[in-house]
Amino acid sequence: MNTVSVKNLTKFYNKQKALDDISFDINTGEIFGIVGPDGAGKTTLLRILTGILEKTSGKISIMNFDIDKDCEKIKYHTGYMSQKFNLYPTLTVEENIKFFAGIFGVSQQEYNDRGEYLLNLTGLANFKTRQAKDLSGGMKQKLALISTLIHKPDVLILDEPTLGVDPVSRRDFWQILQEFSQKGTSIIVSTSYMDEAELCNKIILLFEGRIIIQGNPVEVKKIDSIVLELSSIVGTQHAVSLENIIETIKPFVVDLSFKGEKIRVILKKDGKEAFTKEFGKLFHINEISPSIEDVFMRAMQK
């Protein structure tokens, strides 16, 4: 079943086009990743889905409610966590959760069951009486997550939830997301971390307000490009300067980046032979499977 359906969505800020003809569907229990560079329109898209911003045109339905007609009903089915931490710093962990439970009209019985469960799941149970301002960054994110989950939303919308959170907390956070997705919650998450994109069931790449790639992470990687990893052959590395290498390689490749002492290049599908012929003496050449990052770099070059 489609929990979220977006058709031909556009958004203008004055005359500036922020989103251009966006369409996608999300199924029950899917984790839907929105990836893209800063300013691509990720936050704008999420804010339109939550009803904070109004769209310019297009159709959006969430849980079969049209956002134009039943925005208020949709609010009971969605949970939103914005980029900024925005719970109440002087309230304790428990008071913050209870506050949002109260606003959503969650009954005491429901709160007891679900609140405890969420607190244990996130490991915040021991910090119930601590004021939110005294929590660490990772714990704050988890508290914000609980507050958006307390009313059992069918669709969870998260705007770069793990920005600036340490790797361990990030992994915990994603485990929680996966647990909820398995229980049937659809999750829309924007991220700029490519490893997180790999954890999604479906991703879109937004670039300058348009979707330039759409699909699941495995599909997306089957593209008409190959990725090579070059490591220098001992002896040549001092003979030629780095600038020279880059200058000579550049015309042959789509994208070039450094990874430790190695150079990563993306080539067009048919470009490997020519490249090997030209630079085989300079480098050890290894073909590797493309990462999502490679895919996006390639896509944005087009």
Binding site: T50, G51, I52, E72, K75, Y76, T78, G79, Y80, S82, K84, F85, N86, L87, Y88, P89, F100, I103, F104, G105, S147
Partner: peptide, 13 residues
């Protein structure tokens, strides 16, 4: 200023 309002707009309040 603290963005709490945004968090409240998405609730049925």
């Amino acid at each position: 200023e603290y963005g709490n309002i945004e968090q409240l707009i998405v609730t049925p309040i």
